[in-house]
Design a protein around this nucleic acid. Sequence first.
DNA 1: TCAAAAGTGTTCTCTTTACACCCATGC
DNA 2: GCATGGGTGTAAAGAGAACACTTTTGA
Lengths: 224, 224
Amino acid sequence: MAGKKSYCYDYPHPAVATDVVVFTLVNEQLCILLIQRGEDPFKGSWALPGGFLREDETVEAAAARELEEETGVTECRPLQFGIYSKPDRDPRQRVISVAFLDCLRASDVSLRAGTDATAAKWQPLESLQRHELAFDHETIVSDALVAARKACRETPIAAKMLPEIFRISDFQSATEALLGTSIDKRNFRRQLDEKNWLEKTESEARGTHRPAQLYRLSRSVPET
Amino acid sequence: MAGKKSYCYDYPHPAVATDVVVFTLVNEQLCILLIQRGEDPFKGSWALPGGFLREDETVEAAAARELEEETGVTECRPLQFGIYSKPDRDPRQRVISVAFLDCLRASDVSLRAGTDATAAKWQPLESLQRHELAFDHETIVSDALVAARKACRETPIAAKMLPEIFRISDFQSATEALLGTSIDKRNFRRQLDEKNWLEKTESEARGTHRPAQLYRLSRSVPET
DNA sequence: TCAAAAGTGTTCTCTTTACACCCATGC
DNA sequence: GCATGGGTGTAAAGAGAACACTTTTGA
């Protein structure tokens, strides 16, 4: 592609990459997106989606681009939560990774094996085993979970895992899945209407029960 | 020094630098450390201390090293709070900056002009004018202040601006300077002894008033 | 009429804020 | 004895946690 051009500097420059921890719900279970590496090192292992920073983009833009490339989902605003810079974290060359997280709907994602990936999957966090991930991605995932839990108290990020319109109880389950705790229904609803995160829609959800008011994310909302 | 060796890669690699926002108190006023640039771009302007990441160190280590080089203060643990990666933020070349902050005692610092700096000074934050700083360092400083204010609610970081032993009222003034607010004395003391940040020393401060108990930072304390 | 989920208020506890006086010393 | 900062408690308001029953629908 790039021919044989090479880029030279007087001092060593690290490669800079972004890694993205993508959370979603599959059957009410909190999962993260993993891709299977098609190249050494760690060929065959599962790893976080990510890639190298390009010349003309910020790290935020790089993370959003990677996310779109791996999932087909556009208009993400991944949240930066860490930097990983141990000199030997990648055995090939020095790579500094800027880590991001985002939540999105599993149904919007068309899992696609990327350029250097052979497969992709949604991995339930609960059944993620130790030493299953490449590089230091285990550390990144566990830091991401802490950051996501913090974020979902301050922003409606958990709603990004839901359909465009949803019931309050859906939003509560999503939040509970992310936090790993259960929340009292009345307290959850009260705190919710002190914020301005949701707006009513005209529709209701029907089922073998009382119809439920449906909501969507407000337009004027603190993004991630 | 390094001769004419050069480092080549198949893809463009950005330079990675760390910038450190160092807070201290000079006459009860909150100040930050600035250095005057001896080279273009922005020759003669004031900027944050910082420098490039070396091959064998993490960004945290690089920030600590820079801090030591510019101030002579060892054993810092600067706190990472941001990344600045706009492609054109440095007109010479692409530089990504990982930003850190720390608090330290002005009396421990021997201000020294570094390799590419002609001078260094403590700049009172209050009298920092717009457009006075090089690059995007104004943004970095204002983000640092937000991060430092958050940190001083969670850790005794403000005490790092004080002598090794100090009165509670000193700690309160330092906290107030950092927060830019005044705090009720009794509330401050009550909240303080719910934490385990300080331990009593054997000594007292005397003056034309009732002697004051002196404290030091506890050994087992959440570092920055 | 039953099963299933929706929706709704009150009490208690804990945290945060506001506020004023006496104490020990040096001069 | 007076100026200076040190040290202390209580009440009110707000935030977070605990807790149970009625409503509406579909089958």
